[in-house]
């Protein structure tokens, strides 16, 4: 099994997508503003308010979550799967982290040709923090290796 340094990867400019599901196993894809590690085997993903309500309802009901982080210029990506532990408002220091994460995301999107006027319009806040366990990590770069389980390097 290969290894991935999640903390190092999360320093890049990344886009974040989150999958949840309801009681009927109907999946839902939402975007996230940012993600951060929160100690061994734990992470926090920040969901923007404009579309998070049904995803938060799913997480409160069953906790199952998959978080894909992807670098737009290279499509390198990893996926973390686990269960939500808590759903709460993001704190002020967390919002600072979100702002810094979003700035890197926008720099990446700018590098692939999106104009500043387009990027300025994107809403990332207000957002809700979802604490979750990281039980499995997968290589997610498109190709024959996508979906392969990898070990999170401490």
């Amino acid at each position: 099994m290969g290894q991935v340094d999640i903390a190092e990867f999360l320093k890049r400019g990344l886009c974040v997508l989150v999958a949840t599901r309801d009681a009927a196993l109907s999946p839902l894809c939402v975007s996230a503003s940012a993600v951060a590690l929160d100690g061994p085997g734990r992470a926090i993903v920040y969901l923007p308010a404009y579309e998070s309500a049904p995803a938060l309802a799913n997480l409160r009901a069953n906790g199952a979550v998959a978080v894909l982080v992807e670098e737009p210029t290279t499509h390198r990506g990893i996926q973390m799967k686990g269960r939500s532990l808590a759903v709460r408002e993001a704190t002020v220091p967390e919002l600072d982290h979100v702002a810094e994460f979003v700035a890197r995301t926008k720099a990446e999107l700018s590098a692939i040709g999106f104009a500043p006027t387009v990027l300025e319009r994107m809403n990332f806040t207000p957002c809700t923090a979802v604490e979750f366990t990281v039980e499995q990590v997968f290589e997610q770069t498109p190709g024959p290796g996508a979906g392969r389980a990898v070990e999170a390097r401490a």
Binding site: L17, V18, A19, T20, R21, L25, S26, P27, L28, C29, N62, A64, V65, A66, V67, L68, E70, H75, G77, Q79, K81, Q140, P142, A146, G147
Partner: peptide, 14 residues
């Protein structure tokens, strides 16, 4: 694309 396995584990992919 988000999908969900029969055991209820969601999956996210591009």
């Amino acid at each position: 694309i988000a999908t969900c396995a029969a055991d209820g584990t969601p999956n996210m992919a591009l």
